[in-house]
Design a protein around this nucleic acid. Sequence first.
DNA 1: GATTCATCCTGTAGCCGCTACAGGATCAAG
DNA 2: CTTGATCCTGTAGCGGCTACAGGATGAATC
Lengths: 143, 143
Amino acid sequence: MRAITASRAQELTIGRLSELTGVNIETIRYYERTKVLPAPARTASGRRLYQSADVRTLAFLRRARELGFSLDEIRALLRLGGPEKASCREVRRIATHHLDDIRAKISDLRKLERLLAKTVARCTGTTAPDCPVLDILDIQGRN
Amino acid sequence: MRAITASRAQELTIGRLSELTGVNIETIRYYERTKVLPAPARTASGRRLYQSADVRTLAFLRRARELGFSLDEIRALLRLGGPEKASCREVRRIATHHLDDIRAKISDLRKLERLLAKTVARCTGTTAPDCPVLDILDIQGRN
DNA sequence: GATTCATCCTGTAGCCGCTACAGGATCAAG
DNA sequence: CTTGATCCTGTAGCGGCTACAGGATGAATC
């Protein structure tokens, strides 16, 4: 029977939580809908009531997103950090897998970069009959 | 008044075009709907009828997608390669801009990679009380 | 007490670049 | 003439949000 009166002690509105974490209000609600975040308590009138611990969780979530973790991965990480904070091994597995993804992406992008850079360099910028940029894109350029 | 009888000469069904270019049938129709590709001729019964030139265009499109160009950029490139094949300058502008994007993405990913790799390395994989992976994600780890 | 205005609520639709289906029409081969 | 492959349109879904509309509260001011 706590929180008859709202916004006591450490309790936060969604707007305040948004400010504190830099996560959009709509996004917070989206995280709740998709079960990345647990549904918080509500006031008598139905407004969401967050605890200060939620700031920590949401900040974690935000940072993980910035690091490119998917919401599925984050759901898993949050479960692991939760009550049965068991296997660091599992956390490591997720992070390592993600690291592999990142490395593959970097390698792809660098190949692209080299190809594009080389091509743009050949480009005079004038109205030439044949454009090297269009050429590499063309079927001839297949490798 | 050509093409009364279908699939004469160099004319292709959508399935054949798909095979030749490796682009999914549904994706080809999607490109048409979103005006990346022009609508092709039709047979009397309403089936799409492609010319051999369309193979070239779609292959170009595919390759551009692989190189990470957005459909908007590709729409622009295709227009430029079209009838008024005017300014290589504009092509160069689009490609250069895209190159900048790629470089920014690479730089971001490399930062990520370094941070994650360092952290995973610190991780023993055992059930330790504090997990370095969860730690960098945590608020403390902000930089 | 009444008004104002910020904040909150739910629900729905849009973004990109596809992909996947349903439910039907048509084609080519046996 | 039947089978089975291919085609058609239209609609809905994915992830990860974002942006409304239309309404209900909340806090501060007069």
